[in-house]
Design a protein around this nucleic acid. Structure first.
Lengths: 381, 381
DNA sequence: CCCAAAATCTGAAACGTTACAGGTAGGCTA
DNA sequence: TAGCCTACCTGTAACGTTTCAGATTTTGGG
């Protein structure tokens, strides 16, 4: 808004109280259009097109840079009239603090880093997570940087990098493990973070998690009411990621309560390629002791799974029922329709972002732990 | 690596040539553990746990900060022996330039910003794009920040923000329009960028695009060989995004060449919610002049589309054939199986990242334009 | 063996911000 | 009126880097 800028400059130059001679001179070492000419009053004017700094405002308001800095952050030692004036100028000329300056001086980066595993993309997870986080950050001075790492690499590597180079004020990470080296490391170093998923290591830290135990429990219950007695579970990567345990806990509890039987699904998990899931599923469903009810914890895996079932010549809804978690709504339109529970990953992103921010603000970790509950949708209606 | 650090320090302190008195003293104003004590030789040692800076290396090597800075970037005015020594120390103590320092001094942010529309998530697009870009950036000093914007908001807003605050060295953006205000703005401001998709405004700029014209052409051809004569197209948002035109061009050409007929699909495009696509599709397929062949340019839309077709009581492969573009491999396992063309979005991400980087390096825009060709997979085999 | 040129190296300044340690003016108390 | 306190504002230094304009040493030619 160049017109506002012009207005601001002219308007406020008029209202400057003439400062002492030294004060004035010291304010004149502003960038001039030509390098060598003597400092003249005119030369100290903010150059059109140059980004305004504290110095610009200070000159326009006839104040010191320090005063301006404090006025902008509402410090108590600055008079109200001055604050108003400074803040008005700042707004009019479109002042925005230089991030590099702040970062160099204070060490604050105003960056939140999302550390993700690039391989284990459960359909829609990354994007929804990113958008959820961004929604929250967009109203703050924080930027979001994304740091994916390959599943083959050490998950600690990006974390160490961030800590060593001080490149973020807070970290959000997924694929949390029961005994997570990253959680330990970050806690020891006092770096704020939040995890998608829980740990089991006695360290209190911010997290958001989907209640996978409830999901598995309810899923089995749902299969039981359909008369299914031989239930199988396709879970997360065993047992490295925590929610694998939650799934099994809820699953086993419901199976036992219902007096049903468990059919083990070996060799595949949610990380497995869809092709292998399909093939393995065809094998499993061709065996004599095949399950008649399956719980699956990923939408894309469910699709491969259905393909395998049908390749074995079986019919969903007839020979076997299927319940799946999904983190995007594609399964809604997938056929045959199956029972799904939605995990709202975008909501998780929002929660996680809020958690790190509040953690950075010093809130106790215990107050930043939340769970979201499965939300059943019987798509077969 | 604290052991290496220790080793480096001890080793090199031995090899320091004793510098002149002033030189030595001037080097002693390094951060001491206690604030007020007099500068002693020991106090100037790099503090364990503090991040090393140029000053640390300078002290250890008995050189000036300037020399170290130059030596690390292989400047010609530094002796080879010095360079080797400095670079060795830097490596041993794990020196990494402070980004805020560099950025403040040079204005270089070492950041690439991915500006995305949060709503128009074509299944897997965002994540694959992010991972593709990251793959390339991970071998450079660049970080990736993601700036999503709502489809309701002005697409220019995040772009303006980035330019005004100088928060990135380069920008990657999608949903390119024939006459794209962002492209014009960035070109005028001389900010390096690359677009996913082409413009038609006579400005040469780096881009990567999927050849949607070829995709549509080949798709129709494929339908024609199956005897389909009444062909419909579900395209991108009309006509704001450029590839809408490419799709139609390839589509029309093939339909004309084959002497077939076009069936218009109104009211819906790839941005429409899956629910509305399904419903609208049901209507269209219930009408008397329904198509018998459909080309669809998004995998998730195809799923909703199939649901609509089947809701109308029609059978894929029998009553109607479907060809779709997909940017992830879920359709592979979707049933009924349809003909798909893969767009490798991860590859696009890599291309785009390479393009911005080379653009930043000063390469001519015309050398940074690439197209990727449709890759047919008949999943029905 | 001397001097100029080339080869190396150097400190100071600057980028924009905030923390620190005052400074000044005005009003109040004694 | 002197002394002090409060309210408000100030300049300087520092964060880590690079650029500028030298300074010093080494080399080589005569």
């Amino acid at each position: 808004m160049p017109p506002a800028k012009k207005f601001g400059l002219q308007y406020f130059c008029k209202t400057i109280q003439i400062p002492s001679k030294e004060g004035l001179n010291s304010r004149l070492n502003m960038k001039t259009t030509e390098g060598d000419q003597k400092p003249v009053i005119g030369a100290a004017e903010p150059v059109e097109g140059e980004r305004p700094t504290l110095k610009t405002i200070a000159f326009m308001a006839g104040l010191g840079v320090t005063t301006v800095s404090r006025a902008l952050k509402d410090a108590p030692e600055i008079g109200q009239a001055t604050k108003n004036r400074v803040q008005l100028i700042a707004k009019q000329i479109g002042y925005r603090p230089n991030r590099a300056g702040v970062r160099l001086r204070t060490g604050k980066t105003n960056v939140i880093s999302l550390v993700l595993n690039a391989q284990s993309e459960i359909m829609g997870l990354t994007s929804n997570m990113v958008y959820g986080i961004s929604e929250v950050l967009s109203e703050t001075p924080y930027h979001l940087t994304v740091t994916p790492y390959s599943v083959k690499n050490d998950p600690m590597q990006p974390i160490r990098y961030i800590v060593e180079t001080g490149s973020a004020d807070g970290i959000i990470m997924s694929r949390t493990e029961p005994n997570d080296a990253r959680v330990r490391y970050l806690t020891e170093h006092g770096i704020p973070f939040a995890t998608h998923g829980r740990t089991e290591m006695g360290i209190e830290h911010p997290f958001h998690d989907f209640d996978n135990e409830a999901f598995a429990y309810l899923s089995v219950k749902s299969l039981l009411t359909k008369g299914r007695r031989r239930i199988a579970l396709l879970a997360g990567p065993s047992p490295s990621v925590t929610y694998y345990r939650h799934l099994h806990r809820g699953f086993s509890r419901a199976v036992e309560e219902g007096g049903a039987n468990t059919v083990a699904v070996s060799d595949i998990d949610v990380d497995t390629s869809l092709g292998r899931i399909r093939n393995r599923m065809e094998e499993i469903m061709s065996a004599s002791n095949r399950p008649d009810g399956i719980v699956c914890c990923s939408g894309s895996a469910a699709i491969a799974l259905v393909a395998g079932i049908e390749a074995a010549g079986l019919k969903i809804g007839g020979d076997v029922d299927l319940v799946s978690k999904q983190s995007t709504d594609v399964l809604q339109w997938f056929r045959p329709q199956i029972i799904v529970f939605n995990e709202d990953v975008r909501h998780a992103g929002r929660e996680l972002a809020r958690a790190v921010l509040r953690r950075i603000a010093g809130v106790d970790a215990r107050e930043l732990q939340s769970l979201s509950y499965p939300d059943e949708h019987d798509l077969r209606s």
